[in-house]
């Protein structure tokens, strides 16, 4: 005999979320004593969500289980933010939420109502690249390009947070961004240059 269990880990974040999220948790309260065979999953309710992404307001209906990352990639079509692990371990999905860097795979979309979000697509001003994007090109801070969005969003935050004071400090504050192609040195070069240039980030 098996019982239905809402799985642990990230789904546990639901607990601190809103009322409709709680509905999703309800089946587990009811079904603890019901056999696996008789369990029929309930349809999942969608919740209304308003976000400002790259300066544009979005009114959305979102599955309570959807991560902010999947919302961006699968529902809105902003695929510049990358899924590298879906476990908060690689940094490929880093975006800025209300000015702070965040692994967007680790945050449920519905927990971000009324947030201001900036993704890699929102970093350039029209055709004018952000200084960090220019520096990444100049120093070749990429190979395959898959971790690049997360590296750049993290790098911008690193400078803004005032942490880009030395190569060693930059490495410490960029440690959550994995680059499997191994462009780390060029990435640090790019961040150092932006920091030294004094350009506003």
């Amino acid at each position: 005999m098996q019982t239905f269990k809402v799985d642990e880990g990230r789904r546990g974040f639901l607990k601190k979320s809103s009322a409709i999220t709680a509905l999703y948790l309800m089946p587990s309260l009811f079904v603890k004593a019901i056999s696996f065979d008789k369990l029929i999953p309930l349809p999942i309710a969608k919740e209304k969500l308003q976000l400002e992404i790259n300066g544009k307001t979005y009114n959305l209906e979102v599955d309570a289980r959807t991560s902010l990352l999947d919302l961006l990639r699968e529902q809105i079509g902003l695929t510049g933010t990358k899924k590298g692990c879906d476990m908060g371990q690689c940094g490929a999905c880093i975006i800025h939420v209300n000015g702070k860097r965040l692994n967007s795979c680790m945050s449920l979309a519905i927990d971000n109502n009324n947030s201001k979000i900036v993704t890699i697509e929102g970093l350039a001003k029209g055709d004018q690249l952000h200084p960090m994007q220019e520096a990444f090109i100049k120093h070749d801070g990429m190979q395959c390009g898959y971790c690049t969005s997360g590296q750049i969003m993290s790098a911008v935050a690193c400078v803004r947070e005032g942490q880009a004071t030395s190569r060693e400090k930059i490495k410490d504050y960029m440690e959550g961004n994995i680059c499997r192609c191994g462009s780390y040195q060029n990435i640090v070069d790019a961040i150092m240059e932006v920091k030294k240039s004094g350009k506003p980030v």
Binding site: T79, G80, E121, L129, D140, T148
Partner: peptide, 16 residues
């Protein structure tokens, strides 16, 4: 000597 597809990669336009 810049990477030919660097622009697509730093702007998130590169489609995987």
């Amino acid at each position: 000597d810049d990477r030919a597809d660097g622009f697509e990669k730093v702007t998130g336009k590169a489609k995987f």
